[in-house]
Design a protein around this nucleic acid. Structure first.
Lengths: 188, 188
DNA sequence: GTCTATACACTGATAGAC
DNA sequence: GTCTATCAGTGTATAGAC
């Protein structure tokens, strides 16, 4: 069921998450995906940039779904979000600090060089933000405040992933989870 | 007074901050620094990696000094740190979203590929963290709690810079400043 | 300390057969 | 849809003269 096209996208997602945009070559993508090289430009005529856009859109949607799934539980926003972030910490450690922050590096690398990639990152972040904000609104937090807290949540998670991968420890994201949870609880 | 060596380091700092590690070539560094190409490997025998380490160490120290300068004021930790983060937001906007997060991209790009660069990033982050924690301890917050809050502060700033550059808006860091300030005030 | 020239790998991308 | 071959450009790094 996984077509060649999808196989290329999935491999690209993993490599972008691990190495970033500029360190990931098309040859490596072709090689590790086991896909025929000749078909890359058939499926992605726009070359590397188009492929990267498809890849982050793909992983962005998966993450969005994961956020929503985790937040539908009846827990309070504070507890649900705290639990979700601690879950990220667990998974980052589990991957031996190779995964986490699937679009973080691309966002920084391309913010000043590619408007199309930058805007796609922006779109994904705003979707994630809306998902967190929705949960808090349902929990009784005013929508404007919820929007701001959701922005902090995204920022703290992205930064927390950076620290975890740099320190090779899950502690930063656990601290982020607890402190953010505390802030939401005080607000709500 | 700016020697060739220092000129190369400064140019490298700017390019790394703007483009990241893998997008920045040694040829570009030589060209934009106006330095003689032949001298690059004389000053940095270890090549690109050694140069990058020197560069982030250099900028890391500058930022550390800036943090300390901003936090010696008599304001409460909450207000001093809030003000400092809003100052970052202002400067990111002022640079047309080209500056900010001088080691963020490098930390993510090299976390899985270069232990020496990763450890240098780790060292810098911990120095920044200690500076924030010190201010809070002086303000009466228990040292363990101060250490955790400082970790959140670093994470939220790093993530906030990512969002600002991606959205081309200073709002994310301003929100981070206000919410983090609120959390510290509640704690202290 | 600096210069020029260069080696060699690899990049993204394209052409044309199949 | 896929394959092979290949292009022009760029990457890091080195050698040897000055």
């Amino acid at each position: 069921m996984t077509s060649t096209r999808e196989q290329i996208i999935q491999t690209t997602c993993e490599l972008l998450e691990l190495q970033g945009y500029h360190a990931t070559g098309l040859n490596q993508i072709v090689k590790e995906s086991g896909s025929p090289k000749g078909s890359l430009y058939y499926h992605f005529p726009g070359g590397k940039e188009e492929l990267a856009i498809e890849a982050i859109r793909y992983v962005g949607t998966i993450v969005l779904r994961r956020i929503k799934e985790n937040l539908v539980q009846p827990d309070s926003p504070a507890e649900a979000i705290r639990s979700f972030i601690r879950n990220i910490a667990f998974n980052v450690e589990l991957s031996n600090y190779r995964a986490g922050g699937p679009i973080t590096t691309i966002a920084m690398e391309t913010a000043a060089s590619s408007d199309t990639l930058r805007e796609e990152c922006q779109r994904i972040y705003s979707e994630w933000q809306a998902a967190f904000a929705d949960k808090m609104v349902v929990g009784g937090i005013p929508s404007q405040k919820a929007r701001q807290l959701a922005m902090l949540i995204i920022a703290a998670i992205e930064g927390g992933v950076i620290l975890c991968r740099t320190q090779r420890s899950r502690e930063p994201l656990e601290v982020v989870a607890d402190e953010i949870g505390r802030l939401i609880a005080i607000t709500g």
